Amino acid sequence: MAISADERRELILRAVRESGTPLRLAELADRLAIPAVTVRRDVAALAEAGRVGRSHGFVSFREAPGEPTPASARTVGLLVPSVGSYFDELIAGARAAAAAQGARLVLGIAPYEVRDDRAQAAQLLENGADGLLLAPNLLPNGSARDHRWLDTLPVPAVLVERGRPDHGTLGDRLDMVYSDHRHGVLLALRHLASLGHERVLLAARDDSWTALEVRAGYEQGMRLLGAQPLPVLSTLDPGARPADPALLAAHIATAAANGVRAVLVHNDQDAIQLLPHLRTHGLTVPDDLALIAYDDVFAALAAPPLTAVSPPTRAVGETAVDLLLRRLTTATPLPVHRTALLPTLRIRTSCGG
Results as ranks from 00 to 15, higher is better:
78 L>I: 13
269 Q>F: 09
174 L>I: 07
230 L>A: 13
223 R>K: 10
220 Q>F: 00
203 A>H: 08
244 D>P: 06
34 I>V: 13
70 P>M: 10
37 V>N: 15
150 L>R: 02
93 G>L: 10
255 A>P: 06
268 D>R: 13
153 L>C: 09
262 A>I: 01
34 I>P: 03
137 N>K: 10
88 D>F: 01
124 L>R: 04
69 T>Y: 05
6 D>I: 07
60 S>L: 05
244 D>I: 03
115 R>K: 13
320 A>R: 03
39 V>A: 11
60 S>T: 15
278 L>M: 05
91 I>T: 10
145 R>P: 03
251 H>P: 03
19 S>E: 11
68 P>D: 05
71 A>Y: 07
125 L>Y: 00
19 S>Y: 01
74 R>W: 06
127 N>M: 09
107 L>R: 02
59 V>M: 05
306 L>F: 14
204 A>Q: 04
238 P>L: 03
34 I>C: 08
240 A>L: 15
201 L>Q: 14
168 G>P: 00
285 V>L: 12
93 G>I: 10
116 D>K: 05
228 Q>L: 04
193 A>W: 07
29 A>F: 10
321 V>L: 10
106 V>T: 14
132 L>S: 08
324 L>Y: 08
175 D>R: 12
211 A>L: 09
227 A>C: 13
101 Q>Y: 02
15 A>V: 07
26 A>H: 08
188 A>D: 06
167 H>S: 07
150 L>W: 09
85 S>Y: 15
148 R>S: 08
122 A>P: 00
277 H>K: 05
200 V>Q: 11
94 A>P: 11
123 Q>P: 02
89 E>V: 07
6 D>F: 05
295 D>F: 15
302 A>H: 11
183 H>C: 08
159 L>D: 11
349 T>F: 03
191 H>G: 02
249 A>E: 01
191 H>K: 03
121 A>P: 04
136 P>Q: 11
16 V>L: 07
32 L>W: 01
183 H>F: 04
50 G>N: 07
134 L>W: 14
290 A>S: 14
302 A>M: 10
129 A>L: 12
230 L>Q: 13
111 P>Q: 11
324 L>H: 11
116 D>Y: 01
66 G>M: 09
245 P>W: 02
270 D>N: 15
123 Q>T: 10
39 V>M: 12
219 E>L: 08
79 L>Y: 09
352 G>F: 07
308 A>P: 05
198 E>C: 04
206 D>A: 15
78 L>E: 09
196 G>R: 01
135 A>G: 01
172 D>K: 00
238 P>C: 04
21 T>K: 11
300 A>T: 06
76 V>Y: 02
200 V>W: 04
98 A>C: 15
136 P>W: 03
161 E>Q: 15
184 G>S: 09
57 G>M: 00
24 R>E: 11
53 G>V: 01
256 A>M: 03
27 E>L: 15
